[in-house]
């Protein structure tokens, strides 16, 4: 997929294939007027490689929005977030934490690391679609500032 104007480039970092599929389906359900691309990394290290366009990822688009899970192998969401927000090239991409954790400590920590938003993974499809619509709004609002 190449970077196309007017398309939302979504990058999801999550080790749970079910969640990836559900999120992808939710994006399909919203039938956004913009259309979207959807790329995935299954852990933090892969995510950083993708974002820094290392090796095979050289031709991947810069995402309009990053959906980041917290609990992942190798490099977890907190570490990815810290790394991202330190990187001048990447720090302006909106990062939405998408996690099952409702632990206030997690939310606080993520906020301190300058995540743009925190969303608890929805419990059913209806909620999922509502969440994704919001994500699209976040992503497209950046569009216009580009």
């Amino acid at each position: 997929m190449t970077e196309e104007k007017g398309k939302i480039n979504v990058f999801m970092v999550d080790d749970n294939p079910d969640d990836i599929e559900l999120t992808l389906e939710a994006f399909r359900e919203t039938q956004s007027e913009y259309g979207f691309s959807f790329d995935v990394a299954q852990d933090g290290i892969e995510a950083m490689d993708y974002l820094r366009k290392n090796g095979d990822f050289a031709s991947r688009p810069t995402p309009d929005i990053i959906l980041l899970d917290l609990n992942m192998p190798r490099m977890n969401g907190f570490e990815v977030l810290a790394e991202l927000k330190k990187d001048p090239e990447l720090k302006n991409i909106p990062v939405v934490i998408l996690s099952i954790s409702q632990n206030p400590d997690d939310m606080k920590r993520v906020n301190e690391l300058n995540a743009n938003s925190y969303i608890v993974k929805p419990m059913n499809m209806e909620d999922y679609i509502i969440v994704v619509k919001k994500l699209e709004m976040v992503a497209t609002s950046c569009f216009f500032s580009k």
């Binding site: 969640d19 559900l22 359900e29 099952i100 954790s101 929805p122 419990m123 059913n124 499809m125 209806e126």
Partner: peptide, 20 residues
């Protein structure tokens, strides 16, 4: 109970998708 929610979310979401 935290971890139990995870597969349950998946089940209910896919059922929702099936319905839609």
């Amino acid at each position: 109970s935290h971890d139990l929610q995870e597969p349950l979310r998946t089940v209910s979401s896919f059922l929702g998708l099936l319905q839609r």
